[in-house]
C-alpha cells in the first residue's frame, strides 16, 4: 500500500473546490479558462477551471474534475488551493514541487500526479492568454515516449526543474518509459545531456574513478570497453580457470562480440561452451552496466590462431 501523507488522504476524502465553473457564474469583467490534461487511457486526467478577473489577471476561483487515484485527486485539490487569489503570472511560477510540498510529500512513484496539476494549470493559462506557454517544446520536440505521449522537451524541462538523475525518476514524474520501456535508453541519453550541460555551466567534481564500473550516463569508448573487458578477464576469469589448469586470452573485441582464445586445459575441454557462457559472460555482465553493452554481449571461443 502506498505511504500517503495524512494531507493526501485528507484531500482525497475531503477535496476542496471540486466541480466546474460555468460561464453564467461570471460577471462581465470575469472569464473562465479551462485546462485539460491526461486521458482515460493513461489512467488519470484533470480538467481545471479558473475564474479570472480580466482587469487584474487575478484568479478568483479554481475548481477541478479529476479521474485518477487518491494522489491525483489530492494533487488537483492542492492545486486549486494554491492558485486561488493570486495572479496568472504568479500562478505560472508554481511548480509541481510546490504541489507535492503542499501535500507534505508524495511517494516517488506518484510524483506524476503533481506534474499533471502543473500541466493543467499551464494549459488553462495558455487558453486564457490565447498563446502557448511553452511553444518551443510542445510544438517542435519529437515524442520520446510513445506509450504516454511525452515529448523530448517536456522530459528535459522536468529533469532540469526537479534535478532528476535516473530514468526511473523520470518515469515516476512524467510516466515516460513506464509502458513498453523502449525509450528508457533515450531518457538515459537526455539525462546525460542535461547533466553534461550542467557540468559545463558549473564544473562539478566528477565521480568517474578507475573502478571497473563506469557511470551509466556516458557510452563507453571502445578503448574503455576493451580495457574493462581485459580487466575483468585478468581479475575474475583467469584465476577461476587457473584452478582447473586452464587459461584464457582476449583476442578481439568487435562491437559486442568478444573473442577469446582458450588455453591450457581449456583448449581441449569438451565443456568449453559452458565454461565460456557461465564464467566469462556472467563475470563480464556483472561488471558492465546491464542496460548497456552487457545485455547482448556474446563471448566466442576461437581456435588458437597461432596453430593456423
Amino acid at each position: 500500500m502506498w505511504d500517503y501523507t495524512d494531507k493526501v488522504m485528507d484531500l482525497f476524502y475531503n477535496p476542496h473546490n471540486m466541480g466546474k465553473i460555468l460561464p453564467n457564474e461570471c460577471r462581465e469583467e470575469e472569464t473562465v479558462a479551462v485546462g485539460e490534461v491526461g486521458s482515460i487511457v493513461c489512467g488519470d486526467a484533470l480538467r481545471l477551471h479558473l475564474k479570472i478577473d480580466k482587469r487584474t489577471d487575478e484568479i478568483l476561483d479554481a475548481r477541478f474534475q479529476t479521474f485518477g487515484c487518491a494522489s491525483a485527486i489530492a494533487s488537483s485539490s492542492a492545486l486549486t488551493d494554491l492558485v486561488r487569489g493570486i495572479t496568472v503570472d504568479e500562478a505560472l511560477q508554481i511548480t509541481n514541487r510546490n504541489i507535492a510540498d503542499y501535500l507534505e510529500g508524495l511517494p516517488q512513484e506518484k510524483m506524476h500526479c503533481s506534474v499533471m496539476g502543473k500541466e493543467a494549470l499551464e494549459a488553462a493559462i495558455a487558453n486564457y492568454k490565447g498563446i502557448p506557454i511553452r511553444p518551443e517544446e510542445e510544438d517542435d520536440s519529437p515524442l520520446v515516449c510513445t506509450c504516454f505521449a511525452v515529448s523530448r522537451g517536456k522530459i528535459v524541462r522536468l529533469i532540469r526543474e526537479n534535478h532528476l538523475t535516473s530514468a526511473e525518476q523520470v518515469t515516476n514524474y512524467i510516466k515516460a518509459g513506464g509502458g513498453c520501456g523502449s525509450c528508457l535508453m533515450e531518457i538515459d541519453d537526455l539525462l546525460a545531456q542535461v547533466d553534461g550541460n550542467k557540468k559545463t555551466e558549473t564544473p562539478r567534481k566528477t565521480e568517474l574513478t578507475a573502478s571497473a564500473t563506469f557511470p551509466s550516463l556516458h557510452p563507453l569508448t571502445n578503448l574503455q570497453k576493451i580495457s574493462l573487458i581485459q580487466q575483468v578477464i585478468e581479475e575474475e576469469v583467469r584465476p577461476i580457470l587457473a584452478l582447473d589448469g586452464g587459461d584464457v586470452e582476449l583476442y578481439e573485441v568487435d562491437g559486442n562480440r568478444v573473442q577469446v582464445v582458450l588455453k591450457g586445459a581449456c583448449d581441449s575441454c569438451p565443456s568449453v561452451t559452458t565454461t565460456l557462457r557461465l564464467t566469462i559472460e556472467d563475470k563480464l555482465r556483472d561488471r558492465l552496466q546491464p542496460d548497456r553493452i552487457a545485455s547482448d554481449l556474446v563471448v566466442e571461443a576461437i581456435s588458437n590462431p597461432i596453430k593456423h
Binding site: 502506498w2 488522504m9 482515460i40 489512467g43 488519470d44 485518477g68 487515484c69 487518491a70 491525483a72 485527486i73
Partner: peptide, 11 residues
Amino acid sequence: KYVEGEAILLS
C-alpha cells in the same frame, strides 16, 4: 467506468 481503481480501493 469513469473512475479509477485505487481511488475506489482507498474509499
